[in-house]
Design a protein around this nucleic acid. Structure first.
Lengths: 110, 110
DNA sequence: TTGTTGGTTAAGCATGTACTTAAGTATATT
DNA sequence: AATATACTTAAGTACATGCTTAACCAACAA
């Protein structure tokens, strides 16, 4: 699908990159500055900032600048949205299995 | 990061596209043929097959061909992997909150 | 055997993504 | 005031992605 991205698109897209997952992983242990996020990554600072922009656009991460340092943190509610989508699929499946079970039980009985 | 994709990269990437999520959603209600998957989508069959290839490459979906129809289904263990990554981040966070709580309690006590 | 269904392969194209380097701008520090 | 720090902006490039159409092939079905 060309353009017009939903929140879920942006979130899964954001999580699809290993550098960005490293950043999220770091942030899951507490807030961090841009350069702290950059430390474990083998790329230029501007590249890190671009990844950060992707994470912010997805809603997964937010940040505020105080003085000259920008501090970033995870938005847990947003991460929940991605988790929920997956869990909802599983629920679908389990519902189906339940109905199948009921049907089979009914067959056996009747 | 250029090339060399991990399983997690491929899964989140696969889930980042709304057409592919529609396909997964359909499959979460039970197996389906390629043309069944194509039905709700407004694109050519080859495009659908390409999406299917992305889903298969990620491990989220598998398929077998019998006669001339290919039947597709979700690999639930694979989907679990994506779910786990998110949940692990949350655990990290909760662990941190626990430690913070302990620290504050210790401070208060003495 | 002729046609139809269900899918597959190949090639091409427009757009998006993940970097890079170079240069710039505030906010500390000395 | 001069220097360093912590980003920020801009522009360019290589490669990846999401489609398309056209042509093909292997089951069935009539």
């Amino acid at each position: 699908m060309l353009n017009q991205q939903t929140p879920l698109d942006l979130m899964f897209q954001a999580l699809a990159d290993p550098s960005r997952r490293t950043m999220v992983e770091r942030l899951s242990r507490g807030p961090a500055s841009v350069s702290e996020l950059a430390k474990p990554l083998t790329m230029s600072l501007p590249a890190v900032v671009q990844h950060l922009q992707v994470l912010e656009a997805s809603g997964l991460v937010r940040s505020e600048k105080v003085g000259r340092v920008r501090t970033c943190h995870i938005d847990w509610a947003a991460l929940q949205t991605a988790e929920d989508w997956i869990m909802d699929r599983r629920k679908n499946w389990e519902l189906r299995l339940d109905r199948l079970g009921d049907f089979l039980a009914e067959q056996k009985k009747g």
